[in-house]
Design a protein around this nucleic acid. Structure first.
Length: 282
DNA sequence: AAAAATTACAACCGCCTTCAT
DNA sequence: GATGAAGGCGGTTGTAATTTT
């Protein structure tokens, strides 16, 4: 057992309860200088009378840059409800889909708002959920793919568009072998493919999430139009320590527009990937 | 206006996993 | 392989703020 940490937590003089602004300043300054991690050394070196766990929690749930506070959007709610049905109470995994929200926030939001609105079938923990959990335990990649498809289907249901039927389900996804890259391209119908470059239309973020799972995108370039949220997502993913890497190409790298109409359609951003994988807690 | 109920959020606790030795 | 340290995670609790009665 972690005897020493327990002892430290019980040392007289280790402060508990709400953090003061002064403590926040000390912790923030310390992490800015030394970076997050090695929390054991934080109380000793910063002068904070807090245990290491408390410091880490305060940083990850409150002080860390990029945390979005306030009301959850309807779309965030949908993502959470869907992922909770798929993954169960794996809040850290769910939080990886909402980089601006902490797992603690999501957990609190679920327990206070979303849990009660859960459909009875889901609340009972249906067979699908059990399949998912088995899937996650046995083959994470299959689970990712099935989850990706589920998210794409959810987004399609939210904003129906004229796409061909995908005809797959979460239940059979785990049983099917990995599809070819061409088949994978169908995962996100909002991406248009052609000669090594795909174009991303203005897309609900949930669809883009499904696209992120497409490992076949290594080395592929995408072009983003009106994708401020998409850009933010990528930036955040990178800042959060993920391994999703992209390179932004200058607009000058694009061939000249052939017409004003063509110019109007030019992407705001061109991205290429050295790896489409990002860290996913396993 | 006051009390009760509800909500939102921060923080703690204990268990589990990972990693170094 | 066993052990301990450290970090991470989910469950739970405490409390302030807000809403309802």
């Amino acid at each position: 057992m972690n005897r020493s940490s327990l002892d430290f937590d019980n040392i007289v003089g280790v402060k508990k309860g709400p953090w003061t602004p002064e403590e926040d300043l000390i912790l923030f300054a310390y992490v800015q200088e030394h970076g997050p991690g090695n929390w054991r050394s934080v109380p000793a070196n910063s002068g904070l009378m807090r245990c290491s766990k408390s410091c880490r929690l305060r940083w990850t749930n409150y002080l860390r840059p990029g945390i979005k506070r306030g009301n959850f959007t309807e779309q965030e709610d949908k993502v959470i409800v869907h992922l909770q049905a798929l993954l169960g109470n794996r809040w850290a995994a769910i939080a990886s889909y909402l980089p601006e929200r902490t797992d603690n926030d999501i957990k609190n939001h679920w327990n206070t708002n979303l849990k009660k609105s859960k459909r009875p079938r889901e609340a009972e923990g249906g067979e699908g959920r059990g399949q998912w959990e088995r899937c996650l335990q046995t083959d994470l990649h299959k689970a990712k793919k099935a989850l990706c498809e589920a998210l794409a289907m959810e987004a399609t249901a939210v904003a129906p568009q004229d796409h061909s039927s995908r005809g797959s389900s979460t239940s059979d996804a785990s049983a099917s072998p990995s599809p070819s890259p061409a088949a994978e391209k169908g995962v996100c119908p909002e991406v248009e493919w052609g000669s090594g470059i795909c174009q991303l239309k203005p897309t609900p973020i949930i669809l883009f999430e499904s696209w992120l799972f497409d490992d076949s995108l290594d080395g592929v370039e995408i072009e983003v139009k009106e994708g401020a949220r998409v850009r933010d997502l990528f930036r955040r993913r990178r800042e959060e320590g993920g391994t999703l890497l992209y390179h932004r190409h200058p607009q000058s790298a694009l061939p000249p527009a052939s017409s004003p109409a063509d110019a109007a359609k030019r992407p705001d951003l061109r991205l290429s990937f050295s790896s489409s994988r990002y860290s996913y807690r396993e």
